[in-house]
Write a protein that binds this DNA or RNA. Structure first.
Lengths: 205, 205
DNA sequence: GGATGTGAATGTCTTCACAGCT
DNA sequence: AGCTGTGAAGACATTCACATCC
């Protein structure tokens, strides 16, 4: 299969959400044009994105809403449940632990960790926060797919080093760039960076 | 000035953070090579990014750490204080309101809004949550630069429609794509989308 | 000597435009 | 007729490589 642009993957995720909305509205089929309008892109882009993975549409008709949704879920690996841990139960970590969207997208939260004695041992949304010292041992005994890092910036890379050998993906919320071993996928959610990019767009002149 | 790639802006934001770290370590100058290593990019990329805005370095020497930091802050519009409101004080909104990083990057939180009677009137980190019905009137009387949308997905576009005429930028945390009037910059922080992109990277085969 | 700044070359992504199914 | 699927063209971004200057 051809190499898939990162941007295509992000759009597929959007298309899936639109399909779910169309499905809720009772639509049976959808055209590349209709998907494009909701997603702020072009019909050619939609067709190209989808064609990278196969021929899912019918000429003259469009795409079957439920069939395409199934295909996209398959491509994105939704349905295969992913086990995750959250490390750092501060403000962001807390919000993540309580966030229903995790489960809705097939990510089951197994455990959460912190180092603050005020937080360790507390029960948050059905799980008890464990001390980060237990991290490596726990991961060896009971591995997970993804580590979500929501520590302060200073601890993020060290945390990544500790979980790197045991996980296949890292989602980093700390406002620093972190690296991970070859083969571990890393994604960043960086609010400060988005704010600064917004700041650039707001500059006068 | 030449057109600036979006990706360049995001990297400038990273470079600035590295410069602040270098400054903390007492470094006076820094090479494109050193910046590249921390940022997971190449020295040529760093030089190209910076050269789009001017010639800030000295051949044979590198870049002055404090001078380049000043330049980057200027480019990114940091220093010009930006007034923001947060709309939706659920889990994410609450974390944002309490988030010190906002102020640290020059964004002063003016007000927060919600529709839930349980939340309206509550005091969170020195501001009192107002009812979203007051939004338009407040914005007319006391405008802000940026609206941060942290509502449930169903309310996000409507919220954008309501604030669109009064703000210059929107940062959207709701997991839907929203559109805004011409001239209003929109950025998305979409955790579900990042998770799904991670899911794709985790697929087996 | 050492590191920048930058045209040129390369690589990647998007858009075009149309043949080909239904 | 309508809409997909796709090679080719075009736009955009990154990397190379080297002249230039401190």
């Amino acid at each position: 299969m051809a190499k898939i642009p990162e941007s295509t993957i992000r759009r597929l995720s959007l298309y899936l959400r639109f399909l779910e909305a169309f499905d809720g509205e009772g639509a049976r089929t959808v055209s590349s044009q209709a998907l494009a309008e909701r997603g702020g892109t072009t019909s050619a882009q939609v067709r190209k994105d989808l064609s990278l993975f196969g021929s899912f549409g019918k000429r003259g008709l469009g795409y079957s809403v439920p069939d395409l949704a199934v295909k996209l879920r398959e491509i994105l690996g939704i349905g295969v449940p992913r086990r995750v841990v959250v490390i750092g139960v501060g403000k962001i970590g807390m919000a993540l632990v309580q966030y229903a969207g995790l489960a809705a997208r097939g990510f089951t939260l197994e455990r959460a960790y912190d180092v603050d004695p005020q937080v360790v041992g507390r029960r948050v949304a059905s799980i008890v926060v464990r001390h980060a010292d237990e991290l490596e041992r726990d991961l060896r005994r009971d591995p997970v797919d993804v580590a979500i890092i929501a520590t302060p910036p200073g601890a993020a890379q060290e945390t990544a080093n500790r979980v790197g050998p045991s996980v296949r993906g890292i989602l980093n919320f700390a406002p620093v760039t972190i690296s991970a071993p070859e083969g571990v996928a890393v994604r960043h959610v960086n609010v400060e960076l988005e704010l600064e990019a917004l700041g650039y767009a707001l500059r006068t002149g």
